[in-house]
Design a protein around this nucleic acid. Structure first.
Lengths: 342, 342
DNA sequence: ACTAAAATTTAGCGCGCGTAAATTTTATTT
DNA sequence: AAATAAAATTTACGCGCGCTAAATTTTAGT
């Protein structure tokens, strides 16, 4: 018996020998019906391959099973990886995740929030652009929809924040670099989001504690093509004469990838060995950092834990049915990944 | 006047002084109502900020304004880039694109097709896993939903295919490599989709025409972590003694990135200059290929044209209201991008 | 066998909108 | 200005399911 025959839940209910309200209950939560009932429904399901009309389902529901996942820039494999992990967990929990990318543009981010409103999601995992975000618009959104912020911690926004602890990870790698060679200068990322400034501040703090002088390579612009910024910045730095140190800590791996390209092009050997004249380190453990030349010493963020905790936090909100009394912040520690570049 | 006041289209219609069905018509196509009517509705829209309930909208519609975009592996920036371009065009045309990634897994791909069915999309842009796809399931899906295949051309599936012309691009780069140095061997990608075999075949053809002997470095496995495969393959090839040529054409850039990492690690200098002992080329012009060490000579696929043409093809299908009589195949030519690696 | 609790069924309203058919308004022509 | 066609609007109905309350059946425990 094919699919197209069954037009609605009523028909399917008759065919499965169960009343429609019970079938409805089953689709809302299979565990809410008796085992024997569940079996009969599932037997009919295999036989007739019916699925409820999601539009009719969600129309009169105060809350859907939808979950929005928003990332600022999907072409960044870091976010692709985060999104993938989150997606999987949502599906496993019986939700419908929908992935959106702002592609670095405020206009798109605003459109996404608009669309999300229409989707009446049970909750949203929101990776904001940061500085380019429309603060008041996002604020309004967060008031209306249970929201967990990820990656970029915009003060006061959302019911919770899950991200990485820059003030742990940066000192960790700064100390490693100082132990094993010259104290690093810091190649900052564009000030797109709070992570940018936090990482720079964490660097300066760590350097001060260790008794060294900070040295920051500043960056203009607000674009997300970090490789290019790292590359061009690298060329500039190298042409203008290297900083007073042979060690460069990049604010993230994508910058480091660009920087490595510049160094390579300029014939400067990068690495922690004797033959090298420059050390370069990154932050994030970007999926491709294992395959840079040389392989990149960096801080690994725990994608799985971040995804786990984010989804947990959101589900907590959803299940409680109320909004968070206190905005919680969960920061994960990064792990030092020692490879060849520093 | 705030937002929350208006509960449905009826209320909004009263407030705007237009009948509900006309308002409904407006939301379906603003151009379908008289100019004066449109102005009154839009004035009310600014004043009251109402938006229709998408679930109620789509419930009784034979066809929604949804468009599904499916890619096999979103963590690959190539697909992220394709998806971004397609998304933009769909939005511009007033559609609701939804992005899905199979993340390399058949089970996920099947789930996505399942979900898509429920979404009743006007059409789908489908980048299939390829060999890992459930052919009969996809076939069924394509019968039910207007579908344009992208990237991976699975024979007979979908109403149209848009992709790159491997039999143009591979000979192009093979000839370039032969002109400028030793004839290349070919580092194949895992046989995940038709592109894998086509590129290898195109290589062999091109070599034969040029009077050279083909030499293929074969690869086992069916995973999407091409960098790792390129890296491990690179180590193997280098350790076992290089092939009879100093030139390696990789089936795609991600493999090349891994290969470059292996070469670097082994202290082998890659490039087209005199000091180098190895040349490496790729295919696709991956967003990061500009920043490899050395920068990667490759074939650029025209992302924008591919996105344009895919969306055009799908809109054609949607507007015509009927399915394609003949399955069309549109192949875009690649352009040679000469950088430092070969 | 009896009882309380849990699950299911019956019955029926309402959601917010699409849409066909009937009617009115507007634009065009004579 | 009247006639006619075309466009816009109104009337009226139905979609598929959520949800609830009351009635009934089934299950589990004494």
């Amino acid at each position: 018996m094919g699919a197209g025959n069954i037009r609605n839940m009523e028909e399917f209910a008759v065919l499965s020998g169960i009343s429609r309200p019970t079938v409805s209950k089953y689709f809302n939560d299979p565990a809410s019906v008796r085992g024997s009932t569940r079996e009969r429904i599932e037997a009919a399901l295999k036989k007739y391959d019916y699925r409820p009309n999601i539009y009719a389902m969600n129309q009169n529901r105060q809350l859907t099973k939808n979950i929005g996942i928003v990332v600022p820039y999907l072409a960044d494999p870091f976010f692709a990886e985060v999104a993938r992990n989150i997606e999987r967990r949502c599906i496993a929990a019986g939700f419908w995740p929908t992935l959106f990318s702002s592609h670095g543009e405020q206009k798109l981010e605003n459109n996404i929030l608009d669309s999300l409103r229409s989707l009446k999601p049970a909750g949203v995992l929101l990776g904001l652009l940061g500085r380019a975000s429309d603060r008041s618009l996002v604020e309004k959104f967060c008031r209306d929809v249970p929201t967990v912020l990820i990656d970029a911690n915009i003060e006061g926004l959302g019911d919770a924040f899950i991200g990485s602890d820059n003030f742990q990870s940066i000192p960790l790698i700064v100390e490693y670099l100082c132990r094993t060679g010259e104290p690093p200068c810091f190649f900052e990322m564009p000030a797109l989001n709070p992570n940018a400034n936090k990482r720079r501040d964490a660097y300066e703090q760590a350097m001060e504690i260790l008794g060294h002088t900070s040295q920051v390579i500043r960056v203009k612009g607000e674009t997300w093509d970090f490789e290019r910024i790292g590359y061009e910045g690298g060329l500039r730095v190298i042409d203008a004469g290297l900083p007073k140190t042979n060690t460069i800590l990049c604010s993230n791996d994508r910058l480091a990838i660009g920087f490595l390209a510049a160094a390579y092009e300029k014939g400067i050997r990068v690495g922690h060995d004797k033959d090298s004249t420059l050390r370069v380190a990154g932050h994030d453990d970007h999926p491709f950092s294992r395959f840079t030349c040389p392989s990149l010493t960096t801080i690994a963020q725990d994608y799985e834990s971040i995804a786990d905790r984010s989804v947990e936090a959101l589900f907590g909100l959803i299940e409680s049915g109320k909004r968070a009394d206190v905005r919680s912040e969960t920061l994960f520690e990064g792990k030092l990944v020692m490879r060849s570049s520093a």
